[in-house]
Design a protein around this nucleic acid. Structure first.
Length: 222
DNA sequence: CAATGATCATAC
DNA sequence: GTATGATCATTG
């Protein structure tokens, strides 16, 4: 078992030590077996990194390292450095959101400080051979903050107005709202078009690929 | 062939 | 069901 890092530098050092290793090497160190496919183990890489870095495991709607105020996120990238997938941020509250502001939101809270760990992936590359890239700590600059805040406010307003059923993944410049549940049968209460309560799919906030791509470009000067 | 909407595993 | 970790796979 790995203990929790006491400070930011220790976490960074630990993450940097993983750079260049394959997922198989890390898994072996932790006494874990590498799945053949991620099809039935979608969160495996994320959990592996949490374990390797000493994150507090659990399903809490907060940061991975609350003491440090840091959120850990792995992001699959191709050989050209482009993210392969959007990045899940958190679940979206659908009711009782009156008066909720951006700075109070879980999205803002989580994205204040993120330790990104790129994973050199590819649909056809065996999980075990995928390589961990250089981790880096990111904090949104003023421009990025504003973009995220704009999208968040637009989306939350639509939800509050009972227009959740009209929201698609196309709404928003850098953030998007997408279904986030076990399947299309999982339902949760939300606000209907006339203010009544309806049942709909749980939604989650995601970071769009061009946005995370830009973060990587800024970081590595690609 | 990228993006959107759907889905998988697990803990509680 | 909610929330964590995400990727899958059909569609436009």
């Amino acid at each position: 078992m790995i203990n929790r890092p006491c400070n930011e530098q220790q976490l960074l050092d630990r993450a940097q030590a993983l750079a260049g290793l394959t997922l198989a090497q890390v898994a072996t160190d932790l006494n874990l077996t590498v799945p053949q496919t991620l099809r039935h183990h979608k969160g495996w890489i994320g959990n592996l990194l949490e374990l390797a870095l000493g994150a507090t495991a659990g399903s809490k709607p907060q940061q991975d390292f609350p003491e440090l105020g840091i959120e850990l996120k792995s992001i699959p990238i191709g050989i050209n450095g482009k993210p392969l997938e959007t990045t899940y941020v958190c679940i979206t509250p659908l009711i009782g959101i009156g008066g909720l502001t951006w700075s109070q939101s879980n999205v803002c809270n989580k994205l204040k400080k993120v330790l990104w760990i790129p994973i050199l992936s590819d649909r056809s590359l065996p999980i075990a051979e995928r390589q961990i890239g250089s981790p880096f700590l990111w904090q949104p600059n003023q421009h990025e903050q504003q973009l995220m805040r704009q999208d968040w406010e637009e989306i939350m307003e639509l939800i509050a107005l009972g227009k959740i059923t009209t929201i698609t993944a196309k709404v928003g410049q850098v953030l998007q709202l997408r279904p986030k549940g076990a399947n299309s049968k999982a339902l949760t209460p939300a606000i209907g078009s006339s203010g009544e309560q309806i049942m709909t799919l749980p939604r989650g906030f995601y970071l769009k690929i061009p946005f995370t791509h830009q973060i990587l470009i800024n970081q590595f000067n690609l």
